[in-house]
Design a protein around this nucleic acid. Structure first.
Length: 446
DNA sequence: TTGACTCAACATCCTTTGCTACAA
DNA sequence: TTGTAGGTTTCCATGTTGAGTCA
């Protein structure tokens, strides 16, 4: 009889039905067995079921879980869950930060009642999820990552650990939840999706689409986007209303000279080198050239100098000074693109700073103080964009940032938790006049 | 257990003028 | 004459994280 079993990130098919062409099967070069990548498991079963074939399914040996939740789903969370169920338990739910994606996942875990792997990008999120799941289900939760390797019917893992363990444990879960699922499009991480057999898959993100188009990979591995709400859909109800204020500043004379000089070097190279700078692919081409073409390298470095000048313009510091004075009684997070600027700001305005160099304990202490109110402001580069539980603020100042829509959405999300006094959140965006930063700022608005 | 270190991986990085050689 | 690809076989720099190692 035909037998399906999980083996090293694949589904092995023994004695396939002779009169039936099963899709996705390939002969294993070493053993000669017929195998399919584990994520094709559901599709294989569909084909076999569709032909009324009798087969022995040793993949699906999961013990059902008896779980319940005390959460009352909000309307949109219920709709998201229903949409996912209608898609046969495969797909991505796109909800803004703070809209309660975890709650949707917990409801999905309850409704499936199957061993579940939750995959998250950072150890910080790993701990949050574990606490949340333990509190909700009153069972021990397994953990891959952060120095632990314990498997339980419900297990939380980092993407890195999931990558390392997937071929080993990939057959042990019936449902996999990918938090911040856009990461799954990464060149290496996508293998996680391939090596797991779980037929039911739920992806969670605030920003599904990727500029490199790799959300199509995510779709293939997890399923299509089945539900989507943007910040503006929830602002006023479940998220705070907000305003965005753009403040334009000018370069000093010296900065202007440095910027123009560097920018010209860059543009000059493009003009004389037959490079159209239309897309990320063209940029990569330039990067490749710079490996052995000194002029390309010079152009690239010049572009970086220009970026630094426009992003870290002195006038932005003055603008920040007046913003901080205006919001003496508010809770303010300041974002930059460069760590050295973080430290400059920290020194000049006596702001607690968090960067990648800040150790775990110091980081926790700063965030705790920010939470309880003894600090009312904090300055950071990109650390707090994602994957960290950041206490709520009501004012964000984006001193500089990339053109990434995702980064912008995440930063905005940091101030959108509903205010107890019903007040509005405010995001300042500082942009240097007559530089490419004007376009960068446009791009990230999406 | 902790801290310091290294390493690998991921994300962003770009935006508007015009050459050359070859294919259709 | 007109239209279009060009470049190779990854990676200029910076910021960030997780895993692993070692003391």
């Amino acid at each position: 009889m035909t037998t399906l079993s999980f083996e090293d990130g694949t589904v092995r098919v023994d004695d396939p039905p002779p009169d039936l062409q099963l899709p996705f099967l390939e002969a294993d070069p070493r053993s000669g067995d017929a195998r399919a990548p584990a994520f094709r498991y559901a599709a294989l079963r569909d084909v076999l079921d569709g032909c009324d074939e009798v087969y022995d399914d040793r993949v699906r040996s999961w013990d059902p879980l008896d779980l319940s939740t005390t959460y009352e789903l909000r309307d949109y969370q219920r709709e998201a869950l229903d949409a996912w169920e209608r898609a046969d338990g495969r797909g991505v739910v796109e909800l803004p930060t703070g809209a309660g994606k975890t709650v949707v996942a917990i409801a999905a875990i309850v409704s499936r009642g199957l061993p579940t792997l939750v995959v998250v990008p950072t150890v910080d999120l790993l701990n949050q999820w574990r606490r949340e799941l333990e509190a909700e289900f009153a069972v021990e939760i397994g953990q891959f990552g952060g120095g632990q390797q314990t498997k339980r019917p419900i297990t939380v893992s980092t993407y890195d650990s999931a990558y390392l363990r997937a071929d080993d444990v990939g057959g042990d879960f019936g449902l996999v939840v990918f938090d911040e699922v856009h990461h799954l499009g990464g060149e290496g991480y996508r293998d996680i999706g391939r090596l797991l057999a779980a037929p039911a898959r739920l992806g969670l993100t605030a920003t599904f689409e990727r500029p490199d188009g790799a959300h199509e990979v995510v779709e293939a591995l997890v399923g299509p986007r089945v539900f989507s709400l943007a910040v503006d859909d929830l602002a006023g109800d479940h998220l705070a209303e907000y305003d965005i204020k753009r403040i334009e500043v000018s370069l000093s004379e010296a900065e202007r000279a440095a910027y123009d000089d560097a920018q010209e070097t860059f543009v000059d190279y493009l003009r004389t080198s037959n490079l159209d700078m239309r897309s990320g692919a063209d940029y990569r081409k330039l990067v490749m050239r710079s490996g052995n073409d000194p002029r390309a390298r010079e152009a690239l470095l010049a572009k970086q100098r220009a970026r630094r000048v426009m992003m870290n313009a002195d006038a932005k510091l003055d603008a920040l000074e007046s913003i901080l004075a205006r919001h003496r009684d508010d809770r303010v997070i300041v974002f930059t693109a460069h760590t050295d600027l973080v430290y400059r700001l920290s020194e000049r305005f006596l702001l607690p700073a968090i960067t990648n160099e800040t150790g775990t304990s110091e980081r926790r202490e700063i965030l705790d103080r920010f939470r309880e109110g003894s600090y009312s402001r904090v300055v950071t580069a990109n650390v707090l964009d994602e994957g960290v539980d950041v206490p709520d603020a009501n004012v964000a100042v984006v001193l500089s940032g990339s053109g990434s829509e995702r980064e912008f959405t995440q930063r905005l999300g940091r101030i959108l938790r509903p205010k107890s006094d019903g007040g509005r959140a405010l995001l300042y965006e500082l942009v240097t006049r007559e530089t490419t930063e004007e376009d960068v700022a446009e791009r990230r608005r999406g």
